[in-house]
Every structure is written in structure tokens, then in C-alpha cells.
């Protein structure tokens, strides 16, 4: 790690002021991703602002929904009664990720900001990575790309967003509250992360110096009819190959009035499956309808030498996850 200065502010405003204009400043929350990247030499901040003591550690009812402070640990969010009873898919998703130790450290805001996962990005000794060095190329496209994206990628970058939590937040239409030098604003979860396009180095729409203060969950009366399905190479402590968050409202006869589906492990951002949602809304969840909806969602998917299986896997995962919820094996 390059030497850096360290500052531990007590208030949000102090943190934002401390950030200033410096390009090489980073906020550090749990540190589980940033420190990893600093050790690899991918992140080389000159200044660290430790936001771990800021008073953003509360979960409380907010309007009809719930507000989660940005510095709540992943563990505390997953365990919280308000989350478990109203948004169990978020609990499921968080608990499917990482390990108990990491979840104790990782914060909600930090999880939102974890960098995309790609072998070639994480190790600066690979010369080609448009994310680390814009214009240098993408080593993954013709390299070993089993874990990489099949949806929304660009010729510049095929890395995937590794978060489980964010997939659930996307399905839940969460809203990210941020505060920066120019004041406060809200960013919808679906707008928070970006597809790589020609600027894969920019992963979110957060502006320089902005600090995430909270995550708001809207009221979803059918939130218990939900499931997070994670498919991975080992049964725990592994990144998703494909994951699916489903929240839906089904009639007693199985007709789906509202459907929310998000995919993980397939794209540079948590992937809201709007096409599948549309295809399923108002329909009954029979295998044929589900398969058709999944086909539609993945119609534009494109795989590479080692990851094409993700396309079929994602389709089957959508079918399985929705079937699980409609079949009553959900969280309720």
C-alpha cells in the first residue's frame, strides 16, 4: 500500500468537507473491498477518510417503507426485524454473500460501491484493462472469462458486479440517498450502477465527493413473497455465477399481479429483468410462460469462450426462482 493520510471525521459534513477536490481521496467504511484493492495496488489513495464512526447506523420506518443507514453492517441489516419481516429477500441476498466475518465488517453503503469482479482488473500486472487504464484494452474478452458478463457488456469491459445485496435492492426498487459538496440527492437503485459502455472505469453515477447516507426501501405489501436464488461454484463463500431476486404478488389461482425480478452475476450492474417482469405480469406461472419470459429477458445476451453457459443458466434460474415463490416456498 502506498502511504496515505488518515482522517476519521465525526460528522457527515466533516467527511464531505474533508474529501475536498482531491482525486486521490477515498472514503473507507468496512474496508473489505477497498483495502483488498489497495493491497493489490489497484486503488492507491493518498488520503483515506474513515467514515466508520459517522452516525449513519440506524434502521427505522420511513414513510411506508424503511430507511437503512449507510453504515449499518450487512449483518445488522440482514438480522433486523424490519428487514426480515418486510423484505426478507434482502436478508436472503445479504446472507448468501461473502462470509459472516466479512458481513460483520461490510457496510450497506460500501457494498453498493464494491468494484466489479474480474481477474484482469484486480491484478495490475495485467496490462490490458480499460477499467484500470482507460484505452489499454480488455484482457477478459479473449482471455479466461468464465465469471464474466453476458448482458449489457461493451467491447471495453465484460466485468460483472459481484454484490448479492444489490440484486435484492434492485428488485426492491430501493433508493440511494447521497450527500455531497453540492447538497443531498436521491438515486434510484436501477440508476445507481452503470453499464460499462465506453467508460468502464466509472461504475456508478455517484459524483466525486458524494457520500451515501442511507438506502430507502419503499413499501411493498407482498414483500414476503420473495426469494433470492444464488448459483455458484461452491455452496458458500463464493461469488454468484448467476443469481435471481424475485418479489411478486400472486393471486390464489397463481396469476401474478406484480412481478419484480433482478439478476446478479450476469452484468456490470445488478440487472433488472424488466422484459421478463412485463411478460409475466398478469400471467399464470406455468413452466411454458416462465420459460418464454426468461427467453425474452436473455434474448440479447451474448457469451464468450467460457461463460456462454450463463445464458441458459440465467433462464433456468429465473424459472426456478419464480416457481419457488409461486409454489409457496418463499420467505413468508
Amino acid at each position: 500500500m502506498k502511504p496515505f493520510s488518515y482522517f476519521c471525521p465525526a460528522t457527515v459534513d466533516e467527511a464531505i468537507q474533508g474529501y475536498g477536490e482531491a482525486q486521490e481521496t477515498r472514503f473507507i467504511g468496512g474496508g473489505t473491498n477497498l483495502l483488498d484493492l489497495m493491497k493489490m495496488g489497484v486503488e492507491r489513495p493518498a488520503h483515506l477518510i474513515d467514515i466508520g464512526r459517522l452516525p449513519l447506523m440506524k434502521i427505522s420506518p420511513h414513510g411506508d417503507g424503511v430507511r437503512i443507514g449507510a453504515l449499518i453492517s450487512n449483518t445488522d441489516a440482514a438480522n433486523h426485524e424490519l428487514i426480515r419481516t418486510r423484505y426478507p429477500v434482502l436478508t436472503e441476498a445479504i446472507l448468501a454473500g461473502a462470509s459472516p466475518q466479512l458481513r460483520n465488517m461490510a457496510t450497506m453503503g460500501g457494498n453498493l460501491l464494491q468494484r466489479t469482479r474480474c481477474y484482469y482488473f484486480y491484478d495490475p500486472s495485467y496490462q490490458e484493462c480499460n477499467k484500470r487504464t482507460p484505452g489499454s484494452g480488455c484482457a477478459a474478452i479473449d482471455g479466461y472469462n468464465r465469471i464474466h458478463a453476458v448482458l449489457g457488456q461493451s467491447p471495453q469491459c465484460i466485468a460483472v458486479h459481484p454484490s448479492d445485496m444489490c440484486v435484492a435492492l434492485t428488485a426492491l426498487d430501493a433508493v440511494v440517498q447521497v450527500k455531497g459538496p453540492h447538497g443531498e440527492r436521491s438515486i434510484n437503485m436501477t440508476e445507481f450502477h452503470r453499464l460499462p459502455g465506453d467508460t468502464p472505469q466509472v461504475e456508478t453515477n455517484l459524483q466525486s465527493g458524494e457520500l451515501i447516507t442511507a438506502i430507502d426501501l419503499p413499501s411493498i405489501p407482498y414483500g414476503k413473497q420473495s426469494h433470492y436464488l444464488k448459483i455458484r461454484d461452491r455452496h458458500s463463500y463464493a461469488f454468484a455465477l448467476v443469481s435471481v431476486a424475485v418479489v411478486l404478488d400472486a393471486d390464489e389461482d397463481g396469476t401474478m399481479r406484480h412481478v419484480r425480478i433482478a439478476l446478479g452475476g450476469v452484468a456490470h450492474k445488478p440487472w433488472r429483468a424488466t422484459k421478463a417482469e412485463k411478460a409475466l405480469t398478469g400471467e399464470k406461472a406455468d413452466k411454458k410462460t416462465l420459460r418464454a419470459a426468461a427467453e425474452e429477458e436473455l434474448a440479447d445476451a451474448h457469451g464468450y469462450e467460457h461463460n456462454s453457459f450463463k445464458i441458459e443458466l440465467a433462464k433456468r434460474a429465473i424459472v426456478r426462482a419464480v416457481t419457488t415463490v409461486v409454489g409457496g416456498q418463499q420467505n413468508g
Binding site: 473507507i28 468496512g30 474496508g31 473489505t32 483495502l35 483515506l48 466475518q101 466479512l102 460483520n104 465488517m105
Partner: peptide, 8 residues
């Protein structure tokens, strides 16, 4: 419990 390697 935490991973002491990933915290300063």
C-alpha cells in the same frame, strides 16, 4: 468476528 486482514 471479523477478518483482521481487511481492516486497518
Amino acid at each position: 468476528r471479523i477478518n483482521s486482514c481487511l481492516t486497518l
